[in-house]
Amino acid sequence: MPQKSFRQALNEALHHEMGRDPTVIVLGEDIAGGAGASGQQDAWGGAFGVTKGLLGAFGPLRVRDTPISESAFVGAAAGAAVTGLRPVAEIMFVDFLGVCFDQIFNQAAKFRYMFGGKAVTPFVLRATYGAGTRSASQHSQALYPIFTHVPGLKVVIPSSPYDAKGLLIQAIRDNDPVIFLENKLLYDTVGEVPDGAYAIPFGEANVLREGGDATIIAFGRMVHFAQEATAILAAEGIDCTVVDPRTTSPLDEDTILETAEETGRVVIVDEANPRCGMAADISSIIAENAFGALKAPIMKVTAPHTPVPYAPNLEAAYLPDAKRIAEAVRKTMAYRK
């Protein structure tokens, strides 16, 4: 099986889908780059290089560099989706969605419901998220709980190159608006990715590891930290299950509850801020539906309720890590022998 980077996996997904369906277009700021300038065309291929090569393959009508006008081009993507295209809009940083919330929340997410089920809005919005790049408060947030809160949106957070490709293909083929969030520190991670096209269904958690002692539920980059924590804990004789829900909406509640019931001890790792975050949401689901199976309180490992800081030592303290995850698991193990 070929080894590919997370970035390459996403790029392949876009190539596959643009190749098979002429209504798929991509648009965003510098998704090609260099338009109107004297130098190289497709100069950037996206701020993170994910859309590199699409301009040459599919041309400027379908690979559209936009003005720095998120309201206009995200809203245009919504309008195009509802009139017959499958647009994939790229926002460099999820933080910038502050200037186009209306187009996502009040327009794209609501069309189907408020038009009585007659609208189909196959709209994908890709954005990077996540702290750890010394980019401070406006370029580092993990805003997926906000999107998850909005009915009408689907929210995807891939953690591996394999998932990135299959989930993006599903997002493009899906007939509902999808927010697709890419942790920028995962772009260079490498894993097995088939050459062919494949779609991973939404609402299907990935169980990366099955252990009997505790269940760790994590999203995106935190899945890697959870895996690191299991290695630390295995050496202590604590065997953990690791669940990556892959999508926060729809959420695979069945797998979450089953694995919680199997172990009776749950740690939820969420890079987002804690209030109304995924950790809080999943805790409530488990507490409501699997209370009898719990052997210890549910533990949440999240960022603090602060913006993302700039200084390296502060940012390191902000992000959950394997050590904190392992410590939380130990606490659940020690709660009631």
Partner: peptide, 8 residues
């Protein structure tokens, strides 16, 4: 599952 997801 990975095998079955492949197009075709």
């Amino acid at each position: 599952l990975r095998f079955k997801r492949l197009d075709g």
